[in-house]
Design a binder for these strands. Structure first.
Lengths: 343, 343
DNA sequence: GGATGGCACTCAGCGATCGAGAGTGCTAAG
DNA sequence: CTTAGCACTCTCGATCGCTGAGTGCCATCC
């Protein structure tokens, strides 16, 4: 009983089960795949595969179904990359290039993945923490309030209101000239810098300005450093939730746990960053520690302008998913997305 | 057979069916509600109600179920407003007041409605078209590109990139002084104005500036007017999708059509604005022309700072929903939201 | 030793049958 | 107009037996 053929059998089982959604038996296996041996032989192989934990049968006298371990082996050693078709590639390219701003890019990427995979798509906005600062704008909105607009080199724009402490003499210091000075100083200090370097650069600014505006400068500096550093500020969008309902029957526990997990954006975000790796990462079924996703698999890739990853995107579907196809789609969208991002 | 009692029977049927989720028969009706008559009498009433189209039976020898028309009658004439409990009110108030920015307010409002109603929540961002302009900011990001940041009086911030036409002599005109002038002029012209007044005000600005910067000014003016005017720029967020799965069995056609309808943000937006009315609007089942929502009901209220509505929010659930409760929740959140909005 | 054919065994799924129970509509009487 | 009584209908759940798919094992063959 060659190991090689046994793996071939596993591959056949996975592929068949993914397309038919039904437990696959030894007979159909020999019919649909040129394995060159009889059903009886296959049965022996299947028995071994079951012992090894790669497949299981839902009940006696049913065919076999891959286990999480089986899928894992499949993606690690058996799956061949299946490149997208030319029309698909073109669709991605044109659809993404039509986007008018970052929001648009992100939702379009989501739609694309949802469409290509027929599953749920997750797209994380470019992480503030991993972006550089392109520009900082200060806008007075009231006597003692300032709107601080932060523009990152990935095109993301965040705004925060900033309470301005009164000057030493109790008077506000928000005249246009002061603002212009602060604006210029901050931007000069931050130009092209990564987030990690901002605290230092900004402290220098705060120290350099006159004591009358140091309070304002400090407040702004703190706000910016906080904003860019807060994990809570990461954002993600979903697409293709309706696709879940289509594969509803696949989830033994029903859709609720999955939908609930998807609504927990913080947790989802944790999953994305945790999975973030070079290339495409795959989590299968119970490999996800998240309760709601034990019947689901997650395929994630990071993306970013140039070489540096700034965020992740991916696709979530039933463990019984088309791994090669999903991986290819996620990978392709991530790559094109990296290309169209400003940077 | 008094008309009055018949309506009372209808109310009883609706209320029972909403809580039990099961067709309700004449016997339980007399047991659970003090109608003061025998089951036989109720049966006569029910026969009439059925003729009139307010109730129906799924099959012979099952209880009755309200039809869309039945719910409609219930909502219009039978439902009593059920005020929220004090803890609920307090929860709304504190949860909304903890929001740090507009995004946060909107998602929190969504969560609240989802939580209170146990259904899906829809919250529209303050409409750009119905907002006033608070501030306009111009930020140079490249030789020939300008980032235009628009801040509305509802706290919404939108940004667009603007290609800057070269000056008459072919040189770019994006020095800081020019920008400062433009910024000042635009803001002076727009101060406190509604969108409808912007085109005129901005044309005046474009004409007032020197010919060398008229091109830039015109480009910016067009961009702003377009951005604020575009219907496509309206945004909405969803919350509580997972709640759908819980009432999954209620949807004969399954969740797919509903989820699909919810993903069509443009269509959903159309529904919201179409339903926008004074107070709370209700669409029941087939009253929604949208295919996916024929088994669902939509409860919508508009909200806005001061008297002017700037957008809508609502809740979507199965036709068999708790109308008084849903209406109360939507109404309450809309009111509190109006209060915390800047303006 | 691995591959194979044969064979007995197991068990989910399907359809048919049946009875109980819920609920109705009708009729006749109060 | 209301009500009690009654016959009738139909869903739902349980039971049962069958069929067919699929397996595991054993003896055999290369």
């Amino acid at each position: 009983m060659s190991e090689e053929r046994r793996l071939e059998v596993l591959r056949a089982i996975v592929e068949d089960y993914v397309t038919t959604r039904e437990p696959v038996g030894s007979r159909v296996l020999t019919e649909r795949h040129r394995l060159g041996v009889s059903p009886a032989t296959i049965r022996n192989d299947m028995a071994t595969l079951e012992e090894e934990g790669y497949i299981a049968q839902p009940h006696t006298s049913a065919g076999r179904v891959p286990t999480d371990a089986g899928y894992r082996l499949f993606v690690d050693r058996l799956a061949e990359v299946r490149p997208l078709t030319v029309p698909q590639k073109r669709a991605i390219e044109t659809f993404l290039s039509e986007a008018v701003d970052l929001d648009d890019v992100v939702v379009r990427a989501g739609r694309l993945i949802a469409q290509l995979t027929g599953q749920v798509a997750v797209v994380q906005y470019p992480s503030l923490r991993r972006s550089g600062l392109r520009h900082l704008e200060l806008v007075p909105v009231a006597e003692d309030r300032l709107l601080v607009v932060v523009i990152t080199d990935t095109g993301r724009v965040e705004q925060r209101f900033c309470e301005v402490p009164a000057g030493a003499d109790g008077a506000t210091v928000l005249d246009e000239a002061t603002l212009a000075e602060l604006r210029a100083r901050f931007n000069a200090a931050a130009a092209g810098k990564r987030l990690a370097e901002l605290p230092v650069a900004f402290t220098a600014v705060v120290e350099a300005v006159g004591p009358s505006v140091a309070g304002v400068a400090g407040a702004v500096a703190d706000l910016v450093v906080d904003t860019l550093g807060q994990e809570g500020e990461e954002r993600i969008v979903l697409a293709g939730t309706a696709n879940l309902a289509r594969s509803e029957s696949t989830f033994e526990q029903g859709l609720s746990p999955v939908l609930e997990a998807l609504e927990e954006q913080v947790v989802l975000l944790g999953l994305l960053t945790e999975m973030s790796t070079d290339g495409v990462g795959v989590r299968i079924g119970h490999e996800n520690r998240l309760d709601g996703l034990t019947e689901a698999s997650v395929v994630v890739s990071d993306y970013g302008s140039g070489g540096d990853p700034v965020a992740s995107l991916g696709s979530i579907g039933p463990t019984r998913m088309d791994y090669p196809g999903t991986i290819a789609s996620v990978h392709a969208v991530a790559r094109y997305l990296s290309r169209v991002l400003p940077g």
